[in-house]
Computed example of a mutant assay.
Amino acid sequence: MEQYLTVIFRTILFYVLILIIFRLMGKREIGELSILDLVVFIMIGELAIIAIENPKQSITTTSLSMILLMFIQIVMAKVSLKSKRFRDFVDGKPTIIINKGKIDEDAMRKQRYNFDDLLTQLREKDIRSIGDVEFAILESSGSLSVIEKKYNKDGQPQEGDITIPLIIDGKIEEENLKRIDKTNFWLRRELQKMGYQDVRKISFCSYENGKFFVDIIDEM
Rank of each mutant, 00 (worst) to 15 (best):
I42N: 11
I44H: 15
G45D: 13
G45T: 13
G45V: 14
G45A: 15
E46G: 15
A48S: 15
I49K: 13
I49N: 14
I50R: 15
I50M: 12
I50L: 11
I52N: 13
I52F: 09
P55H: 09
K56I: 10
K56G: 14
K56H: 14
Q57N: 14
S58N: 11
T62R: 05
T62G: 06
S63A: 12
S65L: 06
S65H: 06
S65T: 10
S65N: 10
M66P: 03
M66F: 11
I67G: 10
L69Q: 05
M70K: 07
I74K: 13
M76H: 04
M76W: 12
A77G: 11
S80H: 08
S80Y: 06
S80M: 10
S80G: 12
K82H: 03
K82A: 03
S83Q: 04
S83H: 01
K84S: 07
R85C: 12
R85T: 11
F86C: 01
F86Q: 00
R87Q: 10
D88I: 10
V90R: 00
V90Y: 01
V90C: 01
D91M: 02
G92A: 04
G92D: 01
G92T: 02
K93P: 04
K93L: 06
K93C: 04
K93H: 11
T95K: 02
I96S: 03
I98K: 04
I98F: 03
I98S: 03
N99P: 00
N99Y: 02
G101F: 13
G101N: 15
I103V: 11
I103S: 08
E105I: 15
E105N: 14
D106G: 05
Q111S: 07
R112Q: 03
R112C: 02
R112M: 08
Y113G: 00
D117Y: 00
L119K: 13
L119D: 09
L119Y: 13
L119H: 09
T120F: 12
Q121Y: 07
L122D: 12
L122W: 09
R123Y: 11
R123I: 08
R123H: 11
E124N: 09
